[in-house]
Each structure stands twice: as structure tokens, then as C-alpha cells.
Simulated scan of single mutants.
Amino acid sequence: MAGTSESSDGAITDVPEATERPVALEVLEPGVQTTVQDYPGRRGLQAKGFFPAGPVDHFAFRVANRLVGNEPGAAGLEIPMGRFRVRFGFHGVVALTGADGARPTLNGEPMPTWEAVEVSPGDMIACGIAKGPGFRLYLALSGGIDVPEVLGSRATYTMGGIGGLDGRALARGDRLHLAAEGVGRTRRLRLPQSLRPGYANDWEIEVMRGPHADPGFLTQQDWRDFCSLSWKVDLNSNRVGTRLNAHRFTWARDSGGVAGGHPSNVLDGSYPLGGINTNGDVPVILGPDGPTSGGFTVIATVVHAALWKIGQLRPGRDTIRFREVDFDEAMALTKHVEYALDPAHLEDL
């Protein structure tokens, strides 16, 4: 607010009006665990005990930002399972990507996904439960959400309670602010149907074996089983990890030796993002809020280009089959993902 002040010599001078950040949105229904995220999160801090956080489905998140003219890493919202409603406080564009079946609306009228739509102050977006296929939705706003950076990122790290809005999921009545450069942006873009990801209830997910696979930890038959069985996604899955059904591997050794009695025990070591951690008989795919280290084998690792699929697995319903790929195929898959993210391939509306 503009005002006046008195200097040391008694002169009265004008005080410039403070520039307030535009209100991006007000949360009317927060959903299950809606969080502010950015991409790629806090990389390089694993040695200090921080997994990167960021979106579980990095592809849908980055596409949403591209559609509203942001850089792929601008802060936006991750909305698991839908059931979400917000009121906007700015004039610009927004985009909703991700899971099917949420029936999003803008001011009560059906709203398209995978394309930008124009909004004005007072407009409301609402979505029901995302019946799928898919599980998570992503909302990007032109300019990006303006929350403080913590350790170089705005991403909410739920395990550590940092980043995002006070390190927590959004609650009814929360207000988020917008980076000023996003106000008034009106260009509308759409991701062509041919470049949109295919969601399913039965997924194929690409992995590379190890670091703890055969022949030192698993038998060759164990590995064949791992890549041929259909794995059920457990209901108790979240951003920390995606639990799968228990399976009794044969193991190539009798015990973990000095690390412990079970063959899945190892001396504590670093865990990779997307690592498939085997705690006894229970495999868990480590998510972006997962533990940075521990004493259990990691029998395979989801390749980067397939990590987005983890974000769309529906707990309690979906199944997975793992497919082993080599380094060259993993890199080719990454190029395919990056092709779809190239702004030159978006359609103007």
C-alpha cells in the first residue's frame, strides 16, 4: 500500500506502493493429497538425505506446463485421484493433464484435458474422482505457482515436510500466488492425440536389472519370474513407494550374511529413484519421496522414460509386467518422451 514516511531531516517523502503477487487460486476442495510440485525437484541432495520429490508422472506434469507457455519445471499441482475444486483469481490460461474419468468442468461446463483453456477471476475448475485408467491429474497455470524455494526447489517433499505450501498437502481455504509474468497470457495450445500417453489397467514397465540381481542375489529363474509375472499394485501405495504383491523368490544365497538373516538384506547403501526395493518378499518401487538409503536389495530399476507410468498406477486395481531393456533402448525411450515435449509439436487452438 502506498504511503508516506518522515526522513531523519524531517522531510516527508512518498513510499512506493508494494507490488503484490497475484492470487492464482483458492482451494475449495483439496482432494486426497494435492501438493505443489516442480520438475525435476531437488536433484543432487541424496547424500544429505533428500530424494528429489517432484511429480510422480513427470511427463503429464511437463506437458501441462508446456501447454500454458511455462518452462517444463515451473511449479504446478499434482492431484491424486481427483475430487478437487479451485477458484481462480487471475486472467490467463491453465491446463489439466493426466488420469481419465475425472470429468473436469470449468464453471460447470465440460473442460477438455491435454489442452490450455482461458480463465478469469472467479472462474472455477472442478473434477470428480478419476475413475481411470490412470490415477493422478496435473494442473499448470500460466506463469507457474509462486511458493518459496527450499534447497533449490518448490516441490513438496512429504517425507521431510519441506517445500510447496508449508511442506504439506493443500487444505480447504488455501490460497496460492502466481508468478506475475503469467497474468494475461492467453495463447492456447493442445497436445495432439497421437502424442498423448496411453493409460491402462494392465501396464508394461521397462526396467534395467540390478544393482542387486542375478547371479549374486537372485537366481536366473527368479529374474525370469520377475519379468514374466503379473504384479498387483497394493492399496498401500503412495509417493514414497508403490508396493506390489508379495512373492517368494528362491534367492541365490542362503542369507544376507553380516547384513542380516534374510537373503534380501544388504549392508546399507544408496537407493535409486525408481529402484525396485525388495524387503523380504515384498517388492516396492521407490517414488520421488522415497528413502535415500537402506539395507535391502534393489533387484531392478525403472528407466527414466518409464517413470511417468508409476504416477498413473492405481492402487488396489492395476497390474504390472516388467520388461527388461538395455541402455540403448532406455535412451531411445527417453528420446521418444522428449519428442512429445517439444513445443514445436503442439497445436495452436
Rank of each mutant, 00 (worst) to 15 (best):
G3P: 00
T4A: 09
E6R: 15
A11S: 15
T13F: 15
D14S: 01
L25A: 08
E29Y: 04
P30G: 00
V32N: 02
Q33G: 12
Q37C: 00
Y39W: 12
G41C: 00
R43V: 11
Q46S: 14
Q46R: 13
A47P: 07
G49A: 13
P52W: 06
F61L: 12
V63S: 12
A64D: 10
R66F: 11
R66C: 11
V68I: 07
G73K: 09
G73R: 08
A75N: 01
L77G: 02
R83T: 12
F88S: 00
F90L: 13
L96R: 08
L96S: 09
P104D: 12
T113Q: 09
S120P: 03
G122E: 02
P133Y: 04
P133D: 05
R136T: 14
A140C: 07
S142R: 05
G144Y: 04
I145N: 05
V147G: 02
P148W: 14
M159S: 14
M159A: 15
I162F: 09
D166P: 09
D166S: 15
R168S: 06
R175H: 11
G182C: 10
S194G: 07
S194M: 06
R196D: 06
Y199T: 03
A200Q: 05
A200F: 05
N201M: 08
D202G: 00
W203Y: 15
W203N: 11
E206F: 08
V207K: 06
M208T: 14
G210H: 02
D214I: 07
Q220E: 08
W223L: 12
R224G: 02
D225I: 00
D225F: 00
V233G: 11
N236V: 08
G241Q: 04
A246V: 14
F249G: 07
G257T: 07
A259M: 05
A259C: 05
G260M: 14
H262P: 06
P263L: 07
P263I: 06
V266Y: 00
G274Q: 01
I276H: 00
I285T: 00
G290K: 01
T292K: 00
V298N: 02
V303D: 05
T319Y: 11
M331Q: 13
M331L: 13
A344Y: 09
H345A: 01
D348R: 15
D348F: 15
